[in-house]
Simulated assay, not measured.
Amino acid sequence: MLSFKFLRSTILFFALSASLSSCFSRYIISAKQVKKHYALKKVRPTETIIKNDTLSLCVASVGADTLPMLLLIHGAPGSLWGYMNLMDDEDLQKQFHIVSVDRVGYGKSKLKRKRFVTSIEMQAKVLLPIFALNKSDEKITVLGRSYGAPIAAKLVSLVPDQVKELIMISPVIDPEKEKFYWFSKWGRNSFIQLFLPGEFNTATAEKYSHSDELRKLLPVWQNLEVPTTVIQGGNDWIADPTNIDFAKKHIKSRRAQYIFLYNAGHMITYTHLSMIKEMLMKNRLFQDKISSIVVSNKEGSLGN
């Protein structure tokens, strides 16, 4: 009887571990996948490690460093390679020095003596050295997706004079709308974590502190003055669609714009790439008389 119970528990444990790993595997891109993706491409982003006594920060960049910088900040879990479609775009490469970063705790980025960095403020501060890579005479465009959106906002608040605009896509910013799933509590089990990808464990640690961290961020929204765009999908199962309502309520700046895509899910940077490109290249969202845009068509185009 004991052997049967042990066997059943063992099978259940490994099944649970496999299930947890597969839940977010599509958000984690392996080195093998990256190598295969760029095998036949003419241009591959240059990977660089920014180091000091306590920090290792991995970034991938493409485009001349004398062009205006576009800084890309991923969610949880995720990696800098989650923005490959933006980095690969030839039009964007000609207009921007595109820099995508592994946040601390993901990929090759880490802080010494810290396994997890759940503080939004700390996650933002460690990104400041990237600004030194801007060799252009123009300010930086900062784009953050999902859990990366509030980190992007905090980063912008630290150096607003160096930022041209802030773009938050599928943002998780409302402290009262943090979503938990059936597997969330299992991901906190220290033994199970031994069998899970490090990025998954980092994401779990962030999730259970995220609401408290977002409450600390409330003053940031009120004082945000740089031009800001919030883009939210109506069919987003990760970021509650009402996050856009939170943004409208708490961002006091008149230079904030809101786009709600009724049929979009979470990965808007992939499903609505043409819209993101148009926004970045033509800057059409920041016309003085536009305050809110609702897009219902599949492509999400803003026009020619």
Rank of each mutant, 00 (worst) to 15 (best):
V226Y: 00
W186C: 07
H272N: 15
E176G: 11
W237C: 05
D245C: 01
L218N: 10
R255C: 02
I231H: 07
A247L: 02
I259Y: 05
K216N: 06
A239Q: 03
H266S: 07
E206S: 09
Q257W: 00
V220F: 00
R255F: 09
I238Q: 09
W237P: 15
M275K: 08
V220M: 04
H272S: 11
K177D: 10
S190V: 03
A247R: 01
V156A: 08
K252Y: 08
F180H: 14
I268R: 06
K185P: 06
F191L: 13
F200S: 13
R215K: 14
A205N: 09
Y258T: 03
L261C: 04
S184Q: 08
L166E: 08
P219D: 04
E178W: 03
F195H: 13
T269A: 08
F180P: 03
R188Q: 12
A205Y: 03
I192N: 04
K185C: 04
P227Y: 07
Y208Q: 07
H266P: 07
A203G: 11
W237H: 09
E199R: 08
T269K: 04
G265D: 10
L261D: 01
P219I: 02
Q162R: 14
N189L: 01
N263Y: 05
Y181T: 10
Q162M: 14
A239S: 15
P219R: 04
Q232I: 11
G198I: 05
R215P: 02
A264P: 00
A203Q: 07
I169S: 07
Q193N: 05
P160T: 15
K185D: 11
A205S: 13
D161V: 12
S190C: 00
I259E: 03
D245G: 02
I276M: 13
A256T: 00
M279L: 13
L196G: 11
E165N: 14
I259G: 03
M275F: 07
K249V: 10
L218G: 01
F246M: 06
E225L: 11
L218W: 06
S209W: 08
L214F: 09
P171D: 04
F183N: 12
D236V: 13
Y258D: 00
H272P: 03
I173G: 05
T202W: 02
P171C: 01
W186D: 05
W182R: 08
H250G: 05
F195A: 12
M168D: 00
P219K: 02
L217Y: 02
V156Q: 00
D212F: 11
D161Q: 15
W237Y: 12
G198Q: 14
Y258Q: 01
P197M: 07
Q162N: 12
K249R: 14
L273M: 12
Q232S: 13
P160N: 05
G265M: 00
D245R: 05
N223H: 13
P160M: 12
V159R: 14
I244K: 04
K277N: 01
S157L: 05
I231A: 08
I244R: 02
H266K: 12
W221N: 03
G265V: 03
I173M: 05
F180R: 15
